[in-house]
Write a protein that binds this DNA or RNA. Structure first.
Length: 972
RNA sequence: GCGGAUAUGGCGAAAUUGGUAGACGUGCCAGACUUAGGAUCUGGUGCCGCAAGGCGUGUGGGUUCGAGUCCCUCUAUCCGCACCA
């Protein structure tokens, strides 16, 4: 009596697949290739909950479908195995993170296997394996040894840069990055540089470079974090406060690629939300840079003071102690130049609304602006110093939560508005960010609400500049409508006319130019942590060198404790005798979490290659990822970094496609469904949901595993916790205890985490896979609700019974199929194909149920119908399909490549069609016609029938609309 | 504030793209079988109404013979960014 026993079937086939390497992909094939990628997980100690596999199930369905369709599919899995949790655990317990990670990966592999995914495990990669991170380090060295040539608009090896230095000095070289950090020298001077000076001169060109940078420092974690690891001023992991701090850091020059990263988005088949997030993150804005000369202090009336000497300036701009000498000479040189130009100084501002410049009545500098010390008058110095100190005391979080408060201080200095030569006051305020644009803005209170608030608060003038502006004593008007007034050369012009005219005017006077700005900053690339890739850099005489490629990998050394050293160095400072070539100290920070994940999809193509990160043949064969499945939370982190690395590798000729991920699908998060019991206050009595309003109660979370369909297992509840041993219940009238529920994120504290292992044990992996798909649209956020799983479980049993009526042995007949049966089958063939290609898996599952119900009603046990049906179901319920496929007499494990059943439209065509008949759109009757009837024939038949007489209330037809196959509407 | 999405029975949802709204599944009601089970099967189940009938896809309008679907308005919820000049 072989009833459907999923646990036996699933074990059997999982073992078969493993033993026969059924899903191993070859790097060459006659078939077309298809690459389906899941975002690989960080193997956390908690294991998988029921929400994690959602995307994996969907991608596995696509994978299996594509195999049926005759593709050579690459579908790998691996682990992003460097990361903070294992290290935090190591700090607490002393257990090596590698051990923790290894153990967690085992759990993951076991859980993933039990879901029946068709991964090619022979290609598994782990970012923490030295054989993998050797190549992560190798790519870092490539970045370290490259610069970005703006003339060719791509990255090039540094050797080409130094060759140009030797030939013609630094003149005429246009490189991405901040020219202010770079020296100017002739070929002759270059020749005379020492090695150290040469390296220092080259450093600001490198795509991986070291620089003093304002960073998000997290004292709680003892490390710096990237912007996307900080949420609301707290660390994403752990929720510790984060502060701004100036530290020497390794950076990657992702800004060199900002425009290409932006342009590339247009051709990608990604969700609009993700593309838009990346666009905002890159934050391209088109505007102008305008120079405001600072008035000499003596002339600036109200201030009437002598400004400080230039010498004070370079003290604050600060030269980092470990930055090579030449570079610091450079920064001194630039600030010196700025000061000497006009006897006073000048302030550059960035604006996207240069058309409003006649309304600019004051300037605002960021408190960190380098000219603050220079221009502040003695009378204002105390106030300015106090304001800067207060700004520093405010944490990043305060600044964020407190955006509405207006604060600022007058420097006492004045500048000249370059278009009308009016003096304007120079203020400081922390709403201006040092890191964006020039760190200074021109304030136009009539056109910008923030400037308006500032002006109102400090009593500054608010002149109107457009005839469209109204109520500017109430609020600013930022619209671009109307014509300009009080605006010199652009009076009476519109926005579109004024902007180019002003830019031309400013360029002519040498006081401004059109400029594109990006919000995106370079990516900080170091973490003061142990469990990450060591950065392959060593120091000789204080200068950074990349280690030789032949010395890779630089293996993570063993250390005694996973904490910073007593002197505050990163944990790697504890390593004993950890020296390059026994002499030179290594860099002590490690790479951030996103390093290894930025290129893993390439390694899957050729995972064991020891000579290259991926062989040319494998890279060219697999190309880019055709379908990438993962969570939306990586929109501005991983997905941007990975694209950046790909473009860089492409510049070096190491990869061959335009973009790494062609199509991206974000699976929605599965939320938890918490259950509650209601304790009557002051008692140990619990009252059911239906009667709780009769008592004063407290709602308490209860473990969702001791309920079924919101009905509490009262015995299990008593055993759940000791203090509930004696619990009493007030039940519904039918004797059950019904609990309340609410949707929340899954978490242990809410007792709403549903473990897939439990459900697999109870219903089988096929049922779980089907149910997760059935739950709703893939990309939608949705609450988990175990209730419905019995429905899909019932479907699998019914499917089984089509093959084993009476639960006996296989009993299919070779009778020819009837038209009714063929219609059911071919509708399914067509629909499932459409659904998978639209990623609409939930409707496929519904269709399977309908199909099985109908075949059951038709008592259809025919091979001609059931065999193709098994193929249709196989991507969704692979274990059951394999079992039935074998029982039908096919070779074990052969279903994956058996081919998708052929769809024949003629089986769907009906002999007759029932048309609803409507009068003025209101359906009144139904009438049957031959399927082949023409619209004219139907119209004639309807008019000839007694339909109009019955429903038309004596009116005659004005128009008859026949919608083929759908309805006939008579307009009277 | 800016950007993106969503809104349909008690619940998850579907709707062949403008053509009988609510398929399928849960839940609920009734029934069958039964060594009471969380098994299997059958029927019913949007709302109001005894019925005839009426009303129904977040709100209010519009286009159309016909609107969940197209256009405009508003509202609510969720997500992302956020003093970016």
């Amino acid at each position: 009596m072989p009833a459907y026993r999923p646990e036996e079937i699933e074990k059997k086939w999982q073992a078969h697949w493993k033993a026969h390497r059924t899903f191993q992909a070859q790097n060459h094939s006659e078939k077309p290739k298809y690459y389906v990628l899941d975002m690989f997980p960080y193997p956390s100690g908690a294991g998988l909950h029921v929400g994690h596999p959602l995307g994996y199930i969907a991608s596995d369905i696509v994978t299996r479908y594509k195999r049926l369709r005759g593709f050579n599919v690459l579908h790998p899995m691996g682990f992003d195995s460097f990361g903070l949790p294992a290290e935090q655990y190591a700090i607490q317990t002393g257990q090596h993170p590698a051990l923790t990670t290894e153990k967690n990966i085992e759990t993951y592999v076991q859980q993933l296997s039990s879901l029946g995914f068709s991964y090619d495990w022979s290609r598994e990669v782990r970012t923490s394996d030295a054989s993998y991170y050797k190549w992560t380090q190798w790519i870092f060295l490539k970045l370290f040894n490259s610069w970005y040539n703006l003339d060719t608009n791509k990255a090039e090896p540094l050797t080409e840069l130094t060759a140009r230095f030797a030939a013609s000095g630094s003149d005429g070289i246009r490189a991405a990055g901040d020219d202010g950090d770079r020296l100017s020298f002739s070929a002759g001077q270059w020749q005379l540089f020492t090695e150290k000076q040469k390296l220092a001169a080259v450093l600001p060109y490198r795509l991986a470079y070291q620089q003093d940078t304002f960073v998000n420092w997290c004292p709680g974690l003892g490390t710096v974090l990237s912007n996307d690891e900080v949420k609301d001023g707290l660390s994403e992991r752990g929720g510790f406060p984060v502060e701004r701090r100036l530290m020497p850091q390794w950076n990657l020059r992702i800004t060199a690629y900002a425009d290409r990263l932006l342009q590339g988005l247009d051709q990608l088949d990604w969700p609009d939300a993700v593309k838009e997030m990346q666009r905002n993150w890159i934050g391209k804005s088109i505007g102008a840079e305008v120079t405001f000369p600072v008035l000499p202090a003596r002339a600036s009336g109200a201030a009437g003071q002598v400004s400080d000497t230039p010498a004070a300036a370079s003290a604050t701009s600060g030269t980092p102690s470990d930055t090579p000498d030449v570079a610091s000479e450079a920064s001194k040189a630039t600030s010196g130049a700025a000061l000497s130009s006009s006897g006073g100084s000048e302030i550059k501002v960035y604006t996207t609304r240069v058309d409003t410049i006649y309304g600019a009545t004051f300037l605002v500098l960021a408190p960190e602006h380098e000219l603050v010390d220079v221009i502040t008058t003695p009378a204002q110095r105390a106030a300015v110093d106090e304001y800067i100190a207060a700004t520093k005391r405010r944490s990043e979080r305060d600044r964020m939560t407190d955006v509405k408060a207006v604060s600022g201080v007058f420097t006492g200095a004045y500048a000249l508005n370059p278009v009308n030569n009016e003096p304007v006051q120079i203020w400081l305020a922390d709403y201006v960010l040092a890191g964006y644009g020039t760190g200074a803005v021109m304030a136009v209170p009539s056109g910008d609400q923030r400037d308006w608030l500032f002006a109102t608060h400090f009593g500054l003038p608010i002149p109107a500049i457009s005839d469209a502006q109204k109520d500017i004593d109430q609020q600013a008007d930022p619209t671009k409508e109307g014509r300009y007034i009080n605006s010199g050369i652009i009076n009476r012009l519109t926005y579109k006319e004024a902007t180019p005219k002003l830019i031309a005017f400013l360029e002519e006077k040498g006081l401004g130019k059109g400029k594109v700005n990006f919000r995106q900053r370079d990516a900080i690339f170091g973490r003061q942590r142990y469990w990450g890739e060591p950065i392959p850099i060593y120091y000789k005489d204080g200068t950074a060198y990349g280690i030789a490629e032949s010395d890779l990998p630089l293996v993570l050394p063993e250390i005694d404790e996973y904490k910073p050293t007593e002197t505050g160095e990163p944990p790697l400072g504890r390593a004993q005798n950890w020296l390059y070539r026994d002499k030179y100290p290594y860099e002590l920070s490690t790479m951030p979490g996103w390093a290894g994940s930025s290129w893993y999809y390439l390694r899957y193509m050729d995972p064991t290659n020891e000579a290259r990160f991926v062989s040319e043949e494998a890279e060219q064969y697999w190309g880019s990822v055709d379908l990438y499945m993962g969570g939306a939370e990586h929109a501005t982190g991983h997905l941007l970094y990975a694209r950046f690395w790909y473009l860089f590798l492409k510049d070096l000729g190491l990869v061959s496609s335009g973009e790494p991920f062609q199509k991206l699908i974000n699976q929605g998060m599965i939320l938890g469904r918490s259950n509650f019991v209601y304790r009557i206050n002051g008692t140990n009595k619990f009252v059911t949901l239906g009667k709780k309003d009769q008592y004063e109660t407290t709602a308490l979370h209860v473990d969702v595993s001791i309920l079924e369909n919101d009905v509490l297992d009262m015995e299990a509840f008593r055993k759940w916790r000791p203090d509930y041993n004696e619990a009493e219940f007030i039940t519904e009238d039918n004797g059950t205890y019904v609990s309340g529920w609410e949707v929340e994120k899954m978490s242990k504290a809410k007792f709403n985490v549903v473990n897939p292992d439990v459900l697999i044990g109870k219903y089988g992996a096929d049922a779980l896979r089907l149910y997760e798909m059935f739950l709703g649209p893939l990309e939608q956020y949705k609450p988990w609700n175990t209730n419905g799983i019995s429905g899909v479980s019932g479907f699998l049993k019914k499917l089984w019974r089509l093959f084993h009526p009476e639960d006996g042995p296989l009993a299919v007949t070779d009778e020819p199929a009837t038209p009714a049966e063929l219609k059911v089958l071919h509708r399914a063939i067509q629909k499932v194909q459409e659904d998978i290609e639209k990623f609409s898996f939930n409707t496929s599952v519904s269709l399977f149920m309908i199909t099985v119900n109908e075949l059951t009603a038709l008592k259809c046990h025919k091979r001609a119908i059931l065999e193709p049906l098994v193929l249709l179901v196989s991507p969704y319920a692979p274990h059951l399909a394999e079992e039935l496929w074998q029982e039908l007499g096919h070779e074990a494990g052969s279903i994956s490549h058996a081919g998708y059943p052929e769809f024949r439209e003629e089986f769907l065509v009906e002999d007759t069609v029932v048309y609803p008949l409507a009068i003025n759109g209101k359906v009144r009757e139904q009438m049957q016609f031959a399927a082949a009837a023409t619209a004219a024939e139907i119209e004639t038949a309807v008019l000839a029938s007694d339909f109009l007489a019955k429903h038309g209330e004596g009116k005659s037809a004005k128009k008859v609309i026949v919608v083929p196959g759908r309805m006939v509407n008579v307009v009277v």
